[in-house]
């Protein structure tokens, strides 16, 4: 298996201060929007959505 790579981070406005760093970060307004944006990003980047359980989703290509 090749190494896995975090491609993007998606979170909502409330959790904004939980994320930072050198990865593209997408701030959304609602859980619904977060869900849609993450699904779309995963399709576009051929990656997979993972949920960290604290309101943050990451796109990882395995």
């Amino acid at each position: 298996m090749d190494f896995s790579n975090i491609l993007a981070i998606i979170t909502t406005e409330i959790n904004r201060n939980k994320v930072s760093g050198g990865v593209p970060i997408f701030i959304t307004e609602s859980i619904k929007e977060m869900e849609e944006v993450s699904s779309l990003l995963a399709r576009l980047t051929l990656g997979m959505v993972h949920d960290l359980g604290n309101g943050i989703k990451v796109i990882i290509r395995h």
């Binding site: 993450s38 699904s39 997979m48 949920d51």
Partner: peptide, 20 residues
């Protein structure tokens, strides 16, 4: 279990998409 799927107590994959 939440976003994690597996068999019995073994967690095998974390899935962040509701549809999946």
């Amino acid at each position: 279990k939440g976003n994690n799927i597996g068999i019995d107590d073994l967690i095998m994959m974390n899935i962040g998409e509701e549809e999946a």
